[in-house]
């Protein structure tokens, strides 16, 4: 591999690695958002169950 070939490969590889790193960061962020959404769904479900129980007691 000549010096020119090495530098051209390095320039294109830098861009490719940057895009991959960005995808990895976004994937990590998406996983966090998914965890947050499940946590909030669980919280809302518990709230709804609690409200149902209170309604039954008052009847």
């Amino acid at each position: 591999m000549s010096a020119s070939e090495k530098y051209v490969a390095a320039a294109y590889l830098v861009v490719f690695v940057a895009v991959l790193a960005w995808i990895a960061i976004i994937a990590a962020k998406l996983a966090r958002l998914e965890r947050d959404a499940s946590e909030l769904t669980e919280l809302a479900r518990r709230r709804a169950e609690h409200a149902d129980e209170r309604e039954k007691v008052s009847v």
Binding site: V19, L33, L40, L43
Partner: peptide
């Protein structure tokens, strides 16, 4: 086009994050 795609994905993530934070405050 790549920049446009990245912009849209990141924007969607940020908006979702802000809505979830709002929902957490409401709950």
């Amino acid at each position: 086009t790549l920049a446009g795609t990245m912009y849209r994905v990141e924007l969607a993530g940020k908006r979702l994050d802000s809505r979830l934070r709002e929902l957490r405050e409401l709950l």
